[in-house]
Amino acid sequence: MRHHRLAAVSAALLLTGGAAGSATAAAPAGPARPAAASAEVPAGVSAGVAVFDRQTGAFTEQLNTSTRFRSASVVKVLIALDHLWGLDHAVPDSDRAWLEPMLRASDDGAASAYWSDRGGAAIITRMVDRLGLRDTAPPPGGYEGYWGYTALSARDTVTIYRYLLDSAPSPVRDFVLGNLRQSTRCATDGFDQHFGIAGAFEKPWALKQGWSGSSYEKGTCGPPRTAATARTRSAGPAAATDVDLTRPALHSTGTVGVGDRSIVAVFTLHPVGTPYGKAYTDIGRLVRSLNVPGASRPAGWRFGTWSDHVNVRPGPGTGNAPITQLPAGVEVLVGCQARGEVVNVPPYTNEWWAYLPQYDGWISNIYVNSPDNKMPDVKDC
């Protein structure tokens, strides 16, 4: 049967901008798009973007590169580099126990411990001086203990990664990048952190993501957890006062391609109240529009989804425990589709399932914004 999902159309409209009752508006334009020539920023989103091609030594994308954003968890790269500064031997096991989850799974408890132990804002002061950062600044007055309120720009983020790749001692470079290459889909606070770069490009990549905002309080994969942020009161230079601390932030930074050819820094702010799935989709569309030399783009078709936290299964049926759950209303890449277990979500019924290669799992087509049970143009598995 056809399923336009009128009961859930409001969630779909957040994604597609279509009219109520119009399933056509949610259908994809075709296979995943190739590289574009310039950044395409979704409506309502504020962005700072920089893409640096290490092979040519030139930027391929620059948009608001000096604009300061609150860093969220991207600052954890600076926290790690400060702690490891000058290290010329293997990272001790005692540090690995804290640094690995901080870099791979964006663990907040580890960041807070280092922030407290190493002087809070003094970490940022030291790293600004060491790396010659131009826009980076400690959290503003009254928020000294909130490491995620550190001011950071796209161009400074490129500078940080260039130092890491080209100048850092090899034990530091190998350790930090090695962990960023092992970024986990589920962060320790329960968020699906494989948005932006991870969703737009195939490996190899190395990631440090960031998210901050009241709209993102509910976890999207794994058991949601809340980690308290230490509130130390550390002295430091004058903090930035031009950083937006209100709108939800979602950032994707790292390296892409063989040999870490491109450095990508994308910082975004979204309207207050934006659901996580909508912000996740918007930063994905922005990153996919970028000219990123060396990037490999996955094949498939992109569709919107509806419903809250759709289960991703290891096969086209509900017999096995879910691998994870999708952020509510997020856009997904579909590799192919196949018949499987019949799923009933009254008044809808559907036996077709979509394979999501980036999750290595399946969701029922009943949760896909498509005019028919079987998605148009998508190949059979």
Rank of each mutant, 00 (worst) to 15 (best):
L6D: 13
L6Q: 10
A7G: 11
A12I: 10
G17E: 07
A19P: 08
A19C: 10
A19D: 13
A27H: 11
A27E: 11
A32K: 00
A37W: 00
A39W: 01
E40Q: 15
E40K: 14
V41T: 07
G44L: 03
V45N: 06
G48W: 01
V49T: 03
V49A: 06
D53N: 07
T60Y: 10
L63N: 04
S66K: 15
S66C: 08
S66Y: 00
S73F: 01
V74M: 14
L78I: 12
H83C: 06
W85Y: 10
G86E: 05
H89R: 15
P92R: 02
D95N: 12
R96E: 14
D107L: 14
G109L: 07
A110I: 11
A111P: 12
W115R: 14
G120T: 04
T125E: 15
R126A: 15
R130V: 12
L131M: 14
D135Q: 06
P139G: 09
G141I: 13
E144I: 00
E144L: 07
E144A: 11
A151K: 12
A151P: 02
L152K: 08
S153P: 11
S153C: 02
T157L: 11
R162M: 04
Y163G: 11
L165N: 12
D166K: 12
G178N: 01
C186V: 12
A187W: 07
T188Q: 14
D192H: 13
G199I: 05
K203I: 09
P204F: 07
K208A: 08
G213Y: 10
T220C: 04
R225V: 07
T241P: 11
D244Q: 08
D244C: 01
T246W: 14
P248V: 01
L250R: 00
L250F: 04
S252N: 07
S252K: 09
T255L: 00
T255D: 06
V256G: 10
V266L: 00
V266C: 03
T268S: 07
V272F: 02
P275K: 04
P275Q: 08
Y280G: 13
P293V: 13
A295Q: 02
W301E: 01
W306T: 15
H309C: 06
V310H: 01
R313T: 02
G319T: 05
I323Y: 06
T324K: 05
V330L: 13
E331W: 00
G335P: 09
G335I: 10
C336E: 09
A338M: 07
G340P: 00
V343L: 12
V345R: 14
T349Y: 05
N350E: 10
N350V: 06
E351K: 15
L356E: 12
D360M: 03
G361P: 05
I363N: 00
S364Q: 02
S364C: 06
N365F: 09
N369P: 00
P371S: 04
P371I: 11
D372M: 06
M375E: 09
P376W: 05
V378Y: 10
